[in-house]
């Protein structure tokens, strides 16, 4: 048993180390977010906030006047935080729901149904992973514009709503791992594929689906350039686009460090909250729930 104990100690040591390396930059972001951007350079070596202020958070929430913002090295843009938060939630939720659902449908067809050309079509779908975004952005933008969807939520979510190669690929791989026996039993009982999918496969894949949903939600939440192009208008502007104002605004300029860090932490909060609320249920359901 001693060997096992030592293994656990070593394991924990590694885990703690990884967590420290993970967390330190977050501490640094926190420390920077409570600092005054203009004083940061002079206090670069300080481990605590430099010239402590809540100004950055006031800027993020759109509470500070132009003069106040400029006085602390921020910019003069205005931020309507709650509106953008709502928009981000709308966009990320629709994207996630659509992508996971349609992805699961397709993945099931690739993993479990038998039809001519299946592997060829699947391969084709996976190759979509390799199409550089630089190619897709421009034609997609033109398409969205011609559909009259600029500055609409639909325009922002559409390219990732119906399919991403990642979602299809991911779920297909997990569906392959599901024990076929249960399905077969259901089929023998006379259940059709549609029914098998909704009643057997989806519940059995709660774990992978939850994982995919979380990852999709985060990816969609962090998406920047596409919503910047398609949804710059106030009523659909998402948080990342709005908070872009804390990035460098001029050639060779510096970002508003404190504002950027505050914005980043603040924008991550809703996801952390979501994770905290849903997390246990979601993660616990990730597991071998198939066959007994």
């Amino acid at each position: 048993m001693a060997r096992v104990r030592w293994g656990r100690v070593a394991g924990w040591a590694v885990l703690v180390l990884v967590m420290l390396v993970t967390l330190f930059p977050f501490y640094w972001m926190l420390r920077t977010s409570f600092s005054n951007t203009r004083a940061l350079a002079a206090g670069a070596a300080d481990l605590l906030p430099v010239d402590f202020t809540l100004g950055a958070y006031r800027r993020v929430l759109g509470l500070s006047s132009t003069a106040e913002a400029v006085a602390e090295g921020g910019s003069s843009g205005t931020v309507n935080f709650w509106l953008y938060l709502r928009n981000s939630i709308v966009v990320a939720t629709i994207t996630t729901a659509g992508q996971v659902f349609f992805g699961a449908l397709a993945a099931y067809a690739f993993a479990r149904l038998r039809w001519p050309g299946r592997n060829a079509v699947f391969t084709l779908f996976v190759t979509a992973l390799m199409v550089p975004p630089i190619f897709t952005t421009l034609p997609n933008f033109v398409l969205i514009k011609e559909l009259g969807l600029l500055n609409t939520f639909l325009g922002i979510v559409l390219p990732h709503l119906l399919m991403t190669p990642f979602a299809v690929f991911f779920l297909r791989q997990f569906f392959l791992g599901i024990n076929a026996g249960v399905e077969e039993a259901a089929r023998i009982d006379g259940a059709g594929h549609v029914r098998t999918f909704f009643r057997i496969v989806l519940p059995m894949s709660r774990g992978p689906i939850a994982t995919l949903a979380i990852l999709t939600y985060i990816t969609s939440w962090n998406d920047y350039f596409w919503p910047l192009l398609v949804g710059k208008a106030e009523n659909v502007r998402v948080l990342t686009v709005a908070l872009g104002i804390f990035r460098s605004q001029t050639p060779q300029g510096s970002p508003d460090w404190a504002g950027l860090m505050a914005a980043t932490l603040f924008a991550a909060l809703p996801i952390m909250a979501l994770f905290a609320v849903l997390g246990r249920r979601v993660i616990d359901s990730i597991g071998y729930t198939g066959v007994k």
Partner: peptide, 18 residues
């Protein structure tokens, strides 16, 4: 409408094309 320098020219190019 304001775009940060890092986005400005891309966005403008896309806007010209479309």
């Amino acid at each position: 409408t304001q775009y940060g320098w890092d986005d400005y020219w891309n966005t403008l190019t896309t806007a010209f094309v479309s």
